[in-house]
Design a protein around this nucleic acid. Structure first.
Length: 113
DNA sequence: CCGATGACCATTT
DNA sequence: AAAATGGCCATCG
């Protein structure tokens, strides 16, 4: 499962995830676009799936374009994602990030690539 | 090698 | 405006 080829792609995703400031969230598409794979947003999600052994990768800060915690079920607990976000100061309501537009962190913009 | 799946996004009906 | 479908790329069986 851990091939060097995939590692390279995943690693890039992990790097961006670690760059996400606390209290901020981003979308898979934003990360994919930042990596130059705008059409590989799904792959970003998969990278997150592989990030289970990477505590350095805050997958809970990564949500879909509407700010919905679609991947919460992939966490240790279905509520772990929400609890973690709230713990960082991110208000979550009904599995959705509150004021997502304001909390949205776009690597392409914030990092001023 | 081919088929199926996936934590998505955008377009069309 | 809401819902349905396709596309896209990578990994697994």
């Amino acid at each position: 499962m851990i091939n060097k080829n995939s590692n390279d792609f995943f690693e890039q995703v992990y790097q961006v995830c670690e760059l996400i400031p606390e209290g901020r969230v981003t979308s898979y598409g934003a990360i994919a676009r930042y990596l130059g794979a705008a059409r590989s947003s799904r792959m970003v999600g998969w990278a997150m799936n592989a990030s289970h052994g990477r505590p350095e990768v805050p997958a809970h800060r990564v949500v879909n374009r509407i700010g919905m915690l679609t991947g919460k079920q992939h966490f240790d607990s279905p509520t772990a994602m929400r609890e973690r976000l709230e713990s960082e100061g991110v208000s979550v309501t009904d599995d959705q990030v509150d004021d997502f537009s304001s909390r949205f962190w776009d690597p392409n913009v914030e990092l001023q690539l």
